[in-house]
Simulated scan of single mutants.
Amino acid sequence: MIKKSIGLLAGMLVTVAVYAAGAQLRADHPDSYTVHRGDTLWGISARFLSKPWLWPEIWQANPQVRNPHLIYPGDVLDLSFINGGPALRLEPSMHREGEAIPAVPLDQIKQFLKDSRVVDPDEVKNAPYVMGFEEGDLTGTVGRNVYVRNLDAKPGQRWAIVRPTHVFRTHGGSGAEESDGMTANIADSDVATIRTPWNEEWATSVDNVTPDHAFRGKTLGMEVTVIGEAEVLRGGDPSTLLLLNSIVEIRAGDRLMPIDDNPYDPYYYPHPPKSSPDGARVIAFAQERMSQVGPYDVVVLSVGSKDGVDNGTTFSLWQPGEQVPDDVAHSSFSRYDHKFVTLPDEYVGHMMIFRTFDHVSYGLVMDGLKPVKVGARAKMPE
């Protein structure tokens, strides 16, 4: 039903003071902007502010605006000056309820909000597991029965079927060495592509791989992907479940975990970290086999909720400076004898956290001057 927005109005015009506006306004800001379908609050704020993650301060400065997410296509934002200072005015339009623009493009992160989670590896190891299929089938398909061991459940209960996809670890020694070691994508390809059942033997052998691939650091978490859903028909050990849906064929060794009915909050309020992150690095990309990513790509960060990170936490990403030989200061013919100098870190863009786990977070690259690479450092936003 078409109706006028009443949640943002006090009369026909809402005037909103800009937080630290004189310092935050972009030099090339427009005088007005009409909101379009597909816009995000971050993108709109970037048109007015040099620090777009401060847009919540704009709305919080005006108590009449109860929900900063209730901005709709067709609304007009005007930049004006009142009493010598800048302010944003919102001129609401006619709109359809439910069409409010999001803070970030939810379509880009939907898979990681609903279908992925990072848990302790022991939780996966000890979870109920698929051990067989109806009539001796080699894999499970929708509408057929699957048999599960170690499941304590009643008929009618529904469970998510998950498959391990990545193991996130630090590597190297301890202290500073360990922090510096968080520079690699710790995605274990065997877990993602192995054709035989995933079982406890793999979980044990991962710490006993060849020296060339040895992991000597700590485990940050194991990523699992929801690949199906099943309903309990009969209890017991094994239990009988009906496979309701799946995105791939279910195989022996797949684990069962409770369904998360409310995996995420669709609203995000960008804000700086509570404190300067210590050793936070980009350790993986959502897009496998990518060597670098850009705006609206998903990355994995090596800090999480137990490190003080929450949804909306915004970081600046900096690519570590390379170590290069100082050819000017040394005259030796062999560069191996030269003193190597570490160049300064280079700013590459901003990233906002949209889902956290204990020591790992998913983040969305919001903007950037250069591509983001694995190993990028996360710092206080600038």
Rank of each mutant, 00 (worst) to 15 (best):
R144N: 05
M182P: 06
F285W: 05
R89L: 13
P270R: 06
R158S: 09
K370S: 01
Q64L: 11
V348F: 12
P295I: 02
V372S: 03
P68D: 03
A284W: 01
I227P: 07
A214D: 07
D265H: 14
D115F: 12
G221D: 01
P270Q: 06
I194S: 12
S32V: 00
P320G: 03
V299P: 01
K110W: 15
A203I: 02
P325A: 09
A23L: 11
A376W: 01
A10S: 08
V162W: 05
V232I: 08
V148S: 13
R234F: 10
S174M: 09
L113F: 04
L70G: 04
H213T: 13
P273L: 04
M182K: 08
G363L: 03
I194E: 10
N126L: 14
H330G: 03
T225N: 06
G228C: 03
S302C: 06
R96T: 11
D326V: 02
A87C: 07
V298K: 00
R144V: 00
V341R: 15
H213A: 13
P128E: 04
T210C: 10
R117F: 07
T165Q: 11
A280R: 10
L151N: 08
P92N: 11
M351P: 09
E249P: 00
G143D: 01
P73I: 03
G321C: 08
T165A: 06
G368M: 02
R89C: 12
A176R: 12
G84R: 09
A10E: 06
D28H: 12
L90W: 08
D310Q: 13
I82G: 09
A153P: 14
K373M: 08
V328C: 01
P63S: 11
A203K: 12
Q319L: 02
M351A: 15
A252D: 09
E135H: 12
D137A: 14
P238C: 01
D120M: 02
E91F: 10
E231N: 06
G375H: 05
D137N: 12
H359G: 04
R169T: 13
S332Y: 12
I109F: 12
P102F: 02
I71V: 15
E99W: 10
G308S: 08
G143V: 00
N245D: 15
S291R: 15
A214C: 04
A286N: 15
P197Y: 06
G363C: 07
G308M: 07
V324N: 10
I58H: 01
V104H: 04
P128V: 05
S246C: 13
R149C: 02
A176W: 09
A127N: 05
V248N: 09
L49A: 02
Y336R: 15
G321D: 04
V16P: 06
M351G: 14
K373D: 02
Y269F: 13
W55N: 01
W318A: 04
K339R: 15
V118R: 00
S334E: 10
N262G: 06
R251Y: 08
